[in-house]
Design a protein around this nucleic acid. Structure first.
Length: 248
DNA sequence: AAGCAGGACCTCT
DNA sequence: AGAGGTCCTGCTT
């Protein structure tokens, strides 16, 4: 039996990612397309999903970007940068960064929505894969290594809120997206460096819906892991460098 | 100034 | 009870 999306209340998809009533109406009409777009978001290594989303339904993509610039203008400085006449390179960096933030926020929201859907349907992530439409399954099969897919699905659909160490691992698994803010120094030993502490903290705050999150608080949470034997400082302690006690 | 270490207390699930 | 979030003091880089 396929996943009957009509069983899901509109709130599963709608309000948290800032969709308008018009968008929801369109979504109802083209649910299949949205469905694919959401999954594409989870699996692509770049921001192509935004294009796909807008292709599927142009009205869907726009409200989200508007919402982002309305609620957190300092995090979406693309428009400002044009007014201030920044260099093309700086503009590109700013644009990439805002796209990254929007992507992260939307992915976070979608993961939470999937989590909610899993709870509502009382299913596990594995069942979700098995019950998606055939085309989605074939899309799944096209993926390369599925380690990343399962790490995301596990952390978002297990019914438990994501742990900070899981979140850090997820960022580290996507160097293409997050390599500028966090990266492996020695993956075998589990040693990683937070290159942009403010950015990582912001991403964590978005993921946990904690707008006041900063690196001071995030690092306090990391230090709680010392006792638990999850994360430690490397033998040669360096600023912003930590080590997973049990590397994958 | 920014990061680090850890205590204390709080909220949320 | 567990997992942080928040605030804090004091120390280090």
């Amino acid at each position: 039996p396929g996943l009957n999306t009509s069983q899901l209340p509109p709130t599963v998809y709608g309000p948290r990612i800032g969709l308008t009533e018009n968008s929801l109406t369109l979504m109802e009409r083209s649910r299949g397309s949205l469905y694919f777009s959401c999954f594409d978001m989870l699996f692509t290594e770049d921001a192509a999903w935004l294009v796909k989303l807008s292709e599927a339904s142009p009205a869907l993509a726009l409200p989200m970007t508007r919402m982002e610039s309305r609620e957190e203008p300092e995090q979406c400085p693309v428009i400002d940068s044009q007014e201030q006449g920044l260099s093309p390179e700086l503009e590109r960096q700013v644009e990439e960064r805002s796209l990254e933030q929007v992507q992260s926020m939307v992915v976070g929201e979608v993961l939470k929505d999937i989590e909610t859907a899993c709870k509502l349907l009382n299913i596990t992530p594995g069942m979700l894969v098995c019950t998606t439409p055939a085309a989605t399954i074939s899309h799944f099969q096209e993926l390369p290594a599925s380690e990343e897919l399962w790490s995301e699905a596990d952390s978002s659909c297990s019914g438990q809120p994501i742990h900070l160490w899981q979140f850090l691992r997820e960022l580290l698994l996507k160097p293409h997206n997050y390599g500028r803010c966090i990266r492996w120094l020695n993956k075998e030993k589990g040693i990683f460096k937070i290159e942009d502490s403010a950015h990582v903290a912001r991403l964590w705050g978005l993921r946990k819906n904690r707008p006041a999150m900063n690196y001071d608080k995030l690092s306090r949470s990391i230090r709680q892991y010392y006792k638990k034997g999850i994360i430690r400082k490397p033998d040669v302690s360096q600023r912003l460098v930590y080590q997973f006690v049990h590397p994958v």
